[in-house]
C-alpha cells in the first residue's frame, strides 16, 4: 500500500496547477523512489515529467509499485479543500479504486477526509536519454514567464538563439516584431536573481509560444528555471524543487 505525507499541501497543489492545462488524465506512478509522472499533451508536441522524491515527504511508505490513474481536474477540485499549510496524507491500497486524501491543519483540530475515484489509464511512456545540451541557461522563472507572455502577444512562435553574446528570444507577428536578449549576469549575493549561460555550441531553434506560456504556470514551484537547448532536439525547461522537479520537453518547430 501507499502512505505518503507532505508537510505542506501547497507542494502538490502547485504541481497540479502547473500541469493541469497540459494534460488531463495521467498516472501517478508510486514506487520506492517517490511519486513520478510522465505524460504527453493531446497533440504529442510536449511532454511533462514530474518527480516528488521520498526525501520530500515527512513519511513515505510504498511496498510495491502502484499506478494511480488520476483526472487532474478532479484532483484539483479535491485539493482546493486543502489549505496551503495543511499536512496532507495520501493513502491507497495495492490495486486501488480510489485515492484517499487527508488534510490536517497545523493546530491539529481539523481533519478533512476525501476520496478521489481512480481510472485505468493506458499511458505511453517515452525513454528520454541523458542529453548533453548545446546551451544551458539558468534564469529567474518570473523573468522567463514575462518574456514568454510579452512575446506571445505578438506572435505564435519564438526563435531562441543562444550564442556567446547571450540568449535571444525574438518573434515576428502581424503588428510588428520583438526581441529580448539576456546576457550572462550572475548575481553573487542572490544567485536566484542572476542569469547564467553555459554554451557548448551556438543553438537556434523555434518554438510555439502557446506551450511555453503554459509551462510558465510552474513558476510558483521555483524562483529559477533552467532552459536547455540543442539544435534539432526538444527543448527542456526544468523547475527544480527542494526534493523533486517538474520538467517540460517541447518539440521544436521545423522548416518544411
Amino acid at each position: 500500500m501507499l502512505e505518503a505525507r507532505l508537510e505542506q499541501s501547497s507542494v502538490l497543489k502547485k504541481v497540479v496547477d502547473a500541469i493541469k492545462d497540459l494534460v488531463q488524465d495521467c498516472n501517478f506512478d508510486c514506487n520506492d523512489s517517490g511519486i513520478q509522472l510522465q505524460a504527453m499533451d493531446n497533440s504529442h508536441v510536449a511532454l511533462v515529467a514530474m518527480h516528488l522524491k521520498t526525501e520530500g515527504f515527512a513519511l513515505y511508505r510504498c511496498d510495491r509499485n502502484i499506478a494511480l490513474g488520476i483526472n487532474l481536474v478532479s484532483l484539483q477540485k479535491v485539493l482546493r479543500a486543502a489549505q496551503n499549510e495543511d499536512v496532507m496524507t495520501l493513502k491507497a491500497e495495492d490495486s486501488p479504486d480510489a485515492l484517499s486524501l487527508v488534510f490536517e491543519n497545523s493546530e491539529n483540530d481539523r481533519i478533512s477526509e476525501y476520496d478521489l475515484k481512480l481510472m485505468d489509464i493506458d499511458q505511453e511512456h517515452l525513454g528520454i536519454p541523458e542529453t548533453e545540451y548545446g546551451a544551458t541557461v539558468k534564469m529567474p522563472s518570473a523573468e522567463f514567464q514575462r518574456i514568454c507572455r510579452d512575446l506571445s502577444l505578438l506572435s505564435e512562435s519564438v526563435a531562441i538563439e543562444a550564442t556567446k553574446e547571450g540568449i535571444k528570444f525574438s518573434c515576428t507577428g502581424d503588428i510588428g516584431k520583438g526581441a529580448v536578449t539576456l546576457r550572462q549576469n550572475p548575481n553573487v549575493e542572490k544567485p536566484e536573481l542572476g542569469t547564467t549561460i553555459e554554451l557548448q555550441e551556438p543553438v537556434a531553434l523555434t518554438f510555439s509560444l502557446k506551450y511555453l506560456v503554459n509551462f510558465c504556470k510552474a513558476s510558483g514551484l521555483s524562483n529559477t528555471v533552467t532552459i536547455s537547448l540543442s539544435n534539432e532536439v526538444p527543448l527542456l525547461i526544468e523547475y527544480e524543487m527542494e526534493h523533486g522537479y517538474v520538467r517540460f520537453y517541447l518539440a521544436p518547430k521545423i522548416g518544411d
Binding site: V45, H125, Y249, A251, K253
Partner: peptide, 14 residues
Amino acid sequence: KISQAKIKAYYTAI
C-alpha cells in the same frame, strides 16, 4: 513554411 514537430519523433516509446 514552419511546421510543428511531434515530441514522439525524438524519443523512443518504452
